Computed example of a mutant assay.
Amino acid sequence: MKTLLRAFAVLAIAVGLSGCAISLPFNNRLAYSSISDMKSVQIQGEKPKLSIFWNPVNFPQRIDIQGSDGFVGGGSRTRLPTGVALSSRIEEAISTYADISPSGQNLTITVLEARSGFEYSAGIFNITPAIDVGTVTFNAAFSLNGKTWNQQFSSHKKDPTIGGTSATGILESAWDDVAVQVAKSIAAHIEK
């Protein structure tokens, strides 16, 4: 009976501790290098005005709670602002070549799949968790003035240094990469 109670107590403690969520300091803005890359996109004629609608409408507020894709932190409950990070970056990237305005052309982005994956750097000397691998997949259907298209975008980034250089930088870089891909795709469809 004592053994059964001890086993139950250990199980209860393990379950209780594994439910803790980790909140990392994510940045939801494009990096300067991504903004510079977007400035190379030129739209002929007058600068277009776009009114962006997200489907589902709550995608820009979406926060996923999940564990790491790797062994380290696989049981963690890490808060990933997948919808927040992607939608804000995509809109910022689009704003480099178009005015975002409620009176603009309707651009509807229907999110079919959006996933952020990550791996924490391994090592016993890591005091704070650092992400050293970031993987982002974004599959969406677009509708712009009667034109519709589906496209999948992805990015896989890996930090070559041991221990990671930033707690969140690699995943943020993958989000930037996908946002730039999406914005360039939209620009190409505006030009057609």
Score class of each variant (00 low, 15 high):
120 Y>S: 10
99 D>S: 06
150 N>T: 13
131 I>C: 07
118 F>V: 00
93 A>P: 06
136 V>N: 01
126 N>T: 12
168 T>S: 03
100 I>L: 13
130 A>F: 07
155 S>V: 08
187 A>Y: 02
133 V>C: 02
121 S>H: 13
176 D>W: 11
174 A>T: 10
95 S>Q: 03
184 K>N: 15
112 L>N: 14
148 T>P: 01
114 A>R: 03
139 N>E: 05
168 T>M: 05
97 Y>G: 00
158 K>D: 07
97 Y>A: 02
131 I>F: 01
166 S>R: 02
188 A>D: 08
152 Q>F: 01
115 R>E: 15
123 G>P: 06
118 F>L: 03
101 S>M: 07
117 G>C: 00
186 I>C: 08
124 I>P: 05
180 V>K: 04
184 K>C: 05
121 S>R: 01
165 T>Q: 13
113 E>P: 10
173 S>C: 12
94 I>H: 11
136 V>K: 06
165 T>N: 12
113 E>N: 08
167 A>G: 10
178 V>A: 07
140 A>R: 15
162 I>C: 03
151 Q>C: 02
166 S>V: 08
106 N>D: 13
144 L>G: 09
173 S>V: 01
126 N>G: 07
164 G>S: 02
112 L>E: 09
146 G>D: 11
137 T>A: 07
186 I>M: 10
158 K>Q: 12
172 E>I: 06
133 V>R: 14
118 F>Q: 06
187 A>E: 13
164 G>M: 06
174 A>Q: 11
125 F>L: 12
148 T>N: 04
178 V>L: 14
174 A>W: 08
144 L>V: 10
159 D>R: 04
155 S>A: 15
110 T>N: 06
93 A>G: 02
137 T>I: 02
152 Q>W: 01
124 I>C: 02
107 L>C: 10
106 N>P: 02
165 T>H: 10
116 S>D: 14
115 R>I: 14
133 V>T: 11
99 D>F: 03
119 E>H: 02
146 G>V: 03
176 D>L: 00
159 D>G: 14
100 I>N: 13
157 K>M: 15
159 D>Q: 03
150 N>D: 10
168 T>C: 02
129 P>W: 13
114 A>V: 15
176 D>K: 03
154 S>V: 03
103 S>Y: 11
185 S>I: 06
168 T>F: 05
135 T>W: 12
144 L>A: 13
157 K>Y: 01
122 A>M: 01
105 Q>R: 14
122 A>P: 00
112 L>Q: 13
172 E>W: 05
151 Q>M: 12
125 F>P: 07
153 F>V: 09
142 F>M: 01
112 L>F: 04
183 A>Q: 04
179 A>M: 09
146 G>T: 15
185 S>Q: 01
171 L>E: 07
133 V>K: 15
93 A>F: 05
